[in-house]
Amino acid sequence: MVSIDIETEDGQKEALRRMMLIRSFDDTAGTLFADGEIPGFVHLYIGEEGVGVGACAALEPDDYITSTHRGHGHCIAKGLEPQSMMAELYGKRDGYCNGKGGSMHIADVDAGMLGANGIVGAGPPLATGAALSAAQKDEDRVALAFFGDGAVAQGQVHEAINLAATWDLPAIFLVENNQFGEGTPVEKQHNLENLSETAEAYDIPGFTIDGMDITAVYEAVQEARERARNGDGPTFIEADTYRFRGHFEGDQQPYREDDDIQEWQSRCPIDSFASRLVDAGVMTDDEVESLRAEVDEEIAAAAEYAQNADEPDPTEAYDDMYAVSVPELTMFAGRSVRADGGSPTNTDQ
């Protein structure tokens, strides 16, 4: 649950710290995945930190976000704890989802984080629903959907925008245009050069900003939030950004050139913001470096915690399917044979 005033110097430092936290988290996650420590898939947010942090900084703590398969950054930006996130990546019991979600499904509904999501384009309808809920209860809350350029081709995204626009819901649709939908360049997936022109079809404001500049994202979301809270309906924002890593870890990336990656890396949202703060006299170079070291230490500690955390008990696989107890689960769980040859003892069958 985070809200940062980037107009103040303290807010600027905190925004920088949070971007660094994401970078360090994902650098570490990438390494741990490569080392075989973390199972499954991981999709890293490196390069896009300015979008997540800029957007969440402009939201209020009670606001909702929906996320994507590339969700670590959104989680940290919304104020989730790296320690419990890392534990989730490891599939440990103390993870945000008790080890049932993993990298692609981290959620903390109480913090307004309605889940990373493995389905491209599934978040916007959920955000529309959260905005509907807030509107019906007359709560001072908005819902922001992060989604990628690839998702703009999904039908349900358009349905969600149409609903939110038609009902003037307090929603914000934020496209992170990182230039590739998996391994296919954005121009091969869309007839629009500016994805923000999508908004015109729904008679809502749509515009494109530099997603590598956290201040642009912050300002845009702040304005969109104000519009939403005034009952004027949703806004569509396209943030131009770039993922510095592959679609997933291990992606050989035959679809792009080193030159392009370097060009975008030269606009790194963290380095560029840090140097602006140094230029403006808000921080010294030494302070930036010690902040980075502090953040790296925090993430290293989170990883260590996660490595040593408890595995879930195998019987927990049968928990959380339903709010109530369903006889089938007890009945069928009793038939499962453990890797160690044992069988669950908590059944009555």
Partner: peptide, 22 residues
């Protein structure tokens, strides 16, 4: 609420609303 003819959209919105207290 009368919805548009948009089952994926409004069913999805129902899911989002249910997750947030409705």
């Amino acid at each position: 609420k009368d919805t548009p003819i948009s089952e994926a959209g409004f069913l999805g919105a129902g899911v989002g609303a249910a997750a947030t207290g409705s």
